[in-house]
Nucleic acid binder design. Sequence first.
DNA 1: TTGCTCCTCACGTCACGTGAGGTGGC
DNA 2: TTGCTCCTCACGTCACGTGAGGTGGC
Lengths: 201, 201
Amino acid sequence: VADPTSHDTRAPVLPASAVSGDVGALAEHCYLTTGDMARLSKSTLRTVRFYDEEGILRPVERTDGGHRLFEHSELARLLLVIDLRAAGLSLGDIKALLDLKRGAPTGGDAARIATRVLAERVEELDEKLAVLSRLRSDLLQTAEVVAGCRTCAGHEFFPTDCDRCSIVASHERPPRALCVLWSVGSKRDKADGSARIEERE
Amino acid sequence: VADPTSHDTRAPVLPASAVSGDVGALAEHCYLTTGDMARLSKSTLRTVRFYDEEGILRPVERTDGGHRLFEHSELARLLLVIDLRAAGLSLGDIKALLDLKRGAPTGGDAARIATRVLAERVEELDEKLAVLSRLRSDLLQTAEVVAGCRTCAGHEFFPTDCDRCSIVASHERPPRALCVLWSVGSKRDKADGSARIEERE
DNA sequence: TTGCTCCTCACGTCACGTGAGGTGGC
DNA sequence: TTGCTCCTCACGTCACGTGAGGTGGC
């Protein structure tokens, strides 16, 4: 379980040489390494390298030893990409967003396309936020009901007939997670045929 | 681009035979097919089958021809799984949630574990909601600024020096997407060496 | 009998994870 | 010289997508 991005306490953004007053040296040293990018974005070395291979990030240069060096603006780019990925966009969609301006002939064209695409993405985000908010309240309501079961010990209804228990069944609109997790309104875990009628004959 | 879950208008939940008053026949027919599950959950046949293979869904029975038949409670389960996936949980995490109750010796044990796990999931959801909300407002602010560029035609600053344009650069705390997408504060797309100093020597 | 639905392999894909084995730089 | 960081293959994994070729059921 070794963490390749373990959060040590060194400060990669402004190394010691940067405060020496040597501006030329600072211009050389203020680039970010792959590890800096990974740590500062809380992602991984592999992800930074992968995004480089995919043309999503681009190091300004390489050292003689082949080490990637990134400008600080590439960190902002990486952070945006990570958030867009968390929002569910594919790397293809993200590249399309990032390359939007490059493909347009004039600023006006770029702006019109960008406002349309951004509006679409915001709408998708609204849908996603709605789904996750409902899920959140569903899980929260479920937790509240289930909290009432903490004193349940060797009860006759547990585990297959909890829907017959007054603690759990008294809610007229039970959250979905309660139905699924606590077998409320489900025959899934009951004894074979106990809830079936067509077996007798 | 054929859609295997094309939304036709038939009603799989209550087929014609169900309203005939024949309760025995209804008990047979009110099961859901794989296609019903896919349509009603807006997922795909493959996903339903995959979740069956993975032990996340379970058909009550199979027809002689091998067709899966699901109880309605399995649809609620599928809908929950889909939302949990959208929230970023792995199928392993989801199985753990679904099997929580089955593994506990008493109702009290199950309830204590469940409240803890649910609280964790809610907290994760809060973090995810915070990230997506910030992203949403960032994209929205970016769209507002970029909307001001729609009248830009053949401008001297486009496309590499938009950060020198007063329309775009006047914001003291520009949204991150604006910096990344519109090259505000980035040297990425500028002419080679134009923003570099160490080239001369 | 004709469509439409469902079935099982089985290979492909996307976005990385995870070593193996080697080099770089303060 | 010693660690720690970074490098490049290259195979693995997770959650499905995508045909190929065949059967089922009203």
